[in-house]
């Protein structure tokens, strides 16, 4: 496929969907409509991902897991790429996703106790 066609398809197939992969590049533009809050957010965001008590590599894997749990396609794209750049391999990435999935399904299942409590309370 030539580049002109790739461009054509990107524009025409994506503009009527809620999510557009190229919108990730425009993330920084949120600052344009609220400069102070936008800048504070990005400063905070940058600080969070710096090397600290946790390594930047560990933080990247946490971000990847959370991205899946909050089902943010932009974040999934961003932290898959970030992981590749850091040399994180696919087994590590998938295990991180399972950590997120386990917590999320655990959060559903632990409510089963509430269901059991209510069931028992209502039952003779």
């Amino acid at each position: 496929m030539n580049l002109e066609r790739i461009k054509y398809f990107n524009i025409n197939l994506m503009e009527k969907t809620y999510y557009n992969p190229s919108d990730l590049r425009k993330f920084k533009n949120i600052t344009e409509w609220s400069e102070e809050l936008g800048e504070k957010f990005f400063e905070y965001y940058g600080k969070v991902f710096e090397e600290g008590a946790l390594s930047a590599r560990e933080k990247s894997l946490i971000a990847l897991a959370v991205s899946h749990v909050v089902q943010c396609p932009y974040c999934i794209d961003a932290y898959t790429q970030d992981g590749l750049q850091r040399g994180i391999n696919r087994e590590e990435m998938m295990e991180a996703v399972h950590v997120g999935a386990a917590i999320q399904s655990g959060a559903t299942l632990v409510h089963g106790v509430q269901m059991m409590n209510k069931y028992n309370k209502l039952s003779m």
Partner: peptide, 18 residues
């Protein structure tokens, strides 16, 4: 050099991993 369409990460961290 990255095996795909992404940029290399921090050289010192990668060196440690390698």
């Amino acid at each position: 050099n990255p095996s795909g369409a992404f940029l290399p990460g921090n050289q010192a961290s990668l060196e440690k991993e390698f």
